[in-house]
Simulated assay, not measured.
Amino acid sequence: MPTREQIVSLAESPPPPGESPWVGGATPRAHVEVVEADPAWPQWFEGLAARIRDALGFRAIQVEHVGSTAVPGLPAKPVIDVDLTVADPGDEAAYVPALESAGFHLRVREPWWWEHRVLRAEGPSCNLHVFGFDSPEPVRHRIFRDWLRAHPDERARYAATKQQAAADATARGEHTMQYNARKEQVVREIYHRAFVATGLLPG
Rank of each mutant, 00 (worst) to 15 (best):
L119T: 05
L119F: 03
L119M: 12
R120G: 04
A121Q: 08
E122Y: 06
G123T: 05
G123H: 13
S125M: 06
S125Y: 03
C126A: 03
N127V: 03
N127W: 02
L128S: 01
H129K: 09
H129L: 06
F131L: 10
G132Q: 11
F133L: 13
D134H: 06
D134K: 04
P136R: 14
V139H: 15
R140L: 08
H141Y: 02
I143F: 13
I143G: 13
D146H: 15
D146I: 07
W147L: 05
W147N: 01
L148V: 02
A150G: 02
P152V: 01
D153E: 13
E154G: 04
R155T: 02
A156T: 04
R157P: 00
Y158Q: 05
K162N: 00
Q163N: 00
A166L: 05
A167H: 04
A167G: 01
A167W: 02
A167R: 11
A169L: 07
A169W: 15
T170P: 00
R172N: 02
G173T: 07
Q178I: 10
Y179M: 06
N180M: 15
N180T: 14
K183I: 13
K183W: 09
E184S: 15
Q185C: 10
V186I: 08
V186C: 12
V187G: 06
V187L: 07
H192V: 11
H192L: 13
R193F: 01
R193M: 06
R193D: 05
A194T: 10
F195D: 04
F195P: 07
A197P: 06
A197E: 14
T198D: 10
T198H: 13
L200D: 10
L200A: 08
L201F: 07
L201N: 00
